[in-house]
């Protein structure tokens, strides 16, 4: 067995050793010429190249697209219109009445996304915290319950949407159950409030396990002796939660909040499969609006879709900066303690 292992090790290390020997001289020369900074740049280069090709370059192209119009795909063939697409998206006669906006469905999508983000993230955080607190207790079959809550995370978003559509459809499982119990069926996906609530509920169900897991890791890192001291002092459970658990869980909580915010702004697949943006435009979110304008409509407008995606990207950048700022503040607090 050891012989096989040794042989496999040699097979793996031999080419790496050869490669190291080949690179050794040029790398030493590079270090002599450029110093430590040059070496850092050398090792970052592959990552930066991938980032540039797959993230930065598409972003720049997208910005360029947002300043053009027409159906042509290649930039040189498109007509430059400056900020006209942004103007079209943002122009409203009266910003308190979305019907007066030139691109009213963009604003409807923006309003829906804003409402969705606030409600979904708040409920998700509460639900994930409660789930993590329950899973952190010494329950019977704990691993089983953790797997149960994490399972939806493993499902494809389209599958999640389809499963819930089968449940909530007019002829779905839920209505069959209601009728079976002698009640009237409900058009879950055809009433505005029900459909919006369904979109929130389904996305929470799909992502709860992921965020609960992050919070659970935070809970398990809290020293037990703090709880023992509180117990000896006769501190009430609610006070223990607010004074010990929540403050010490805050670093993980911040990560969860920011990640949940970003995901909520990007909501698309589960909601699109579930409601198709309906009824009317009740669950039309920003990403679907961009998709509809850029890809799905019979006469596509990639310039307008690009402008909308740049505006949405701006929101996401703000959220990312918020995450960085909060992370740094936490780090500073940790050092001070």
């Amino acid at each position: 067995m050891t012989g096989v292992k040794g042989m496999l090790g040699a097979v793996v290390t031999a080419p790496l050793g050869a490669l190291a020997r080949v690179l050794d001289a040029p790398l030493r020369l590079w270090q002599r010429l450029t110093g430590q900074g040059g070496m850092v740049a050398f090792f970052l280069l592959p990552n930066m190249a991938i980032f540039t090709i797959f993230v930065l370059l598409p972003l720049v192209i997208n910005v360029a697209y947002s300043m053009t119009t027409g159906a042509a795909l290649f930039l040189p063939e498109r007509t430059y219109v400056g900020a006209a697409q942004y103007e079209r998206l943002l122009r409203c006669a009266d910003y308190t009445n979305l019907a007066t906006c030139q691109e009213d469905q963009f604003w409807i999508a923006l309003r829906n996304t804003g409402t969705f983000v606030v409600l979904q993230v708040s409920l998700l955080i509460v639900a994930a915290t409660i789930t993590a607190l329950i899973l952190n207790r010494a329950l019977r079959a704990l691993s089983f319950w953790r797997a149960v809550f994490f399972f939806p995370v493993l499902l494809s978003p389209v599958v999640v949407g389809l499963i819930w559509r089968w449940i909530l459809d007019r002829n779905g499982v839920l209505n069959a159950a209601l009728v079976g119990m002698g009640m009237d069926p409900v058009n879950w996906l055809l009433e505005r409030n029900y459909a919006f609530s369904a979109a929130i509920g389904v996305t929470i169900w799909a992502h709860l396990g992921f965020f609960a897991l992050i919070l659970l890791a935070g809970l398990q890192a809290i020293p037990r002796d703090l709880y023992e001291a509180a117990e000896m002092d006769g501190t009430k459970p609610a006070r223990v939660f607010w004074r010990i658990t929540l403050p010490l869980l805050m670093p993980n909580m911040l990560v969860v909040i920011v990640l949940a915010l970003i995901r909520a702004v990007q909501v698309f697949d589960e909601a699109y499969v579930l409601t198709g943006g309906g009824p009317g435009t009740a669950t039309l979110f920003l990403t679907q609006y961009i998709y509809e304008v850029g890809f799905a409509s019979l006469l596509k407008n990639p310039g307008l879709a690009a402008a909308a995606s740049i505006l949405m990207g701006g929101v996401l950048i703000l959220l990312t900066l918020l995450q960085l700022a909060l992370g740094k503040r936490n780090e500073r607090k940790g050092r001070l303690k």
């Binding site: 058009n187 943006g277 009317g280 509809e292 799905a296 409509s297």
Partner: peptide, 24 residues
């Protein structure tokens, strides 16, 4: 039938053939 037209947004195409096939 409300489902076909109302339960979607934009210019999404939806056929109602299944509702006819299911005698709805």
């Amino acid at each position: 039938l409300r489902d076909t037209w109302v339960a979607a947004s934009g210019s999404t195409y939806r056929a109602a053939a299944d509702d006819f096939i299911n005698a709805a």
